[in-house]
């Protein structure tokens, strides 16, 4: 049976969906039951990831993609991630400014997310946010990563089609060659081709990609755009759609979807385990003893880690972040955990 909030979201209630996204972003356990129901309804959208260095023009391109998709009668969701300040924990989410003209269009849902300490240009809640939009029936979901340059490769596990955007004058030419970013693109976009130095960048990118073997029957092309001027974006849209049909024809669509499911699942496992381990080590006495033994050179990190891991896994309580109350297995008594209620709205 679908809960009320799920029914409202499936009916297209933007406010209900937005509130759920918020609760998921804040990791409220109560939000997860709704997500479970929505997850079963999702899995139809074409997820297009856009990555590239800061200021390359990702948001401006996303805006044009939304425009084209709407003209083609498709509904669109956008998830745009921006970095969180490591100092304050705050964030300025500025991607929306480039797409704001679509806000009044009921066929478009734009959501900004802060990375919140997650690496690789995505936030932990990206997968959940995409699931909600997907379940709402969005045909196309655009996923813009935080402009991270070197480590924006995680998006490869979160999208069917990955756009890597480069632009001249950002040190992209040399840096791009170094980063793993040249391995994840399904489509490479040289943006700002209204600028003269874009030719040089296109050439060096072409050289760097030379000899790339086709994957899933697809050889990544280079598309030149001037997003602000709307130049080349029509062709880009065609190529994105072509990539989709190629995946479907090659039987690779399911493979990509499976890979996306795997990425989201592994993320959760790793987060849960890391949280569990941290909690154990912070609360338990065993770890403190191990730290001492290591400092005194009575043991070595490999042996200590192996023993501790075995011990933790044999106790294997569900990771604390997955249940309401955590009881640390390393301590004798289970201290009462103060219950905090999720306040509505904040």
């Amino acid at each position: 049976m679908n809960s009320l909030i799920v029914r409202r979201i499936l009916r297209g209630d933007v406010g209900a969906a937005a509130r759920l996204m918020r609760d998921l972003d804040d990791e409220l356990p109560s939000a997860r039951s709704a997500l479970k129901e929505l997850y079963a309804r999702a899995g139809r959208a074409h997820v297009v990831g856009i990555t590239g260095s800061p200021g390359a023009g990702k948001s401006t391109l996303a805006d044009k993609l939304v425009e084209a998709a709407r003209k083609g009668g498709k509904s669109v969701g956008v998830v745009a991630v921006d970095p969180t300040s490591p100092f304050s924990g705050g964030a300025v989410l500025g991607d929306r400014i480039r797409m704001q003209r679509h806000t009044a269009d009921p066929g478009v849902f734009i959501r900004s997310l802060a990375a919140r300490g997650s690496l690789g240009g995505l936030s932990r809640s990206v997968f959940d946010t995409v699931t909600v939009l997907d379940a709402m029936g969005k045909d196309l979901i655009i996923l813009e990563t935080a402009g991270v340059g070197q480590d924006g490769v995680k998006v490869a596990g979160a999208a069917h089609t990955v756009l890597v955007v480069l632009s001249p004058g950002q040190g992209d030419d040399i840096q791009a060659l170094k980063a793993g970013i040249l391995e994840i693109g399904d489509i490479y976009v040289v943006n700002k081709c209204d600028r003269k130095d874009s030719e040089q960048l296109t050439r060096s990118l072409g050289l760097a990609l030379e000899g790339t073997s086709p994957r899933d029957g697809w050889t990544p092309p280079i598309i030149k755009t001037a997003a602000v001027l709307g130049r080349g974006t029509r062709e880009l849209v065609d190529v994105i759609n072509e990539h989709r049909s190629t995946l479907v024809r090659a039987g690779a669509w399911e493979r990509r979807s499976l890979n996306m499911a795997r990425t989201a699942f592994m993320e959760l496992l790793e987060t849960g385990l890391r949280g569990f381990i941290n909690e154990e080590c912070e609360r338990g006495k065993d770890c403190r003893k191990i730290f001492g033994d290591l400092a005194a050179r009575k043991t070595d990190p490999y042996s200590a880690a192996k023993t501790t891991l075995r011990k933790l896994l044999s106790k294997s309580p569900p990771p604390p972040s997955f249940k309401k109350r955590g009881c640390p297995p390393f301590s004798k008594a289970c201290p009462p955990v103060p219950r905090r209620r999720g306040r509505r709205g904040i």
């Binding site: 969180t84 300040s85 100092f87 304050s88 924990g89 705050g90 964030a91 300025v92 989410l93 500025g94 929306r96 400014i97 704001q100 900004s112 802060a114």
Partner: peptide, 12 residues
């Protein structure tokens, strides 16, 4: 507000 630890969306 960002420096105060908040997430701020600016729409222009």
């Amino acid at each position: 507000l960002r420096d105060a630890g908040m997430e701020v969306i600016y729409t222009g």
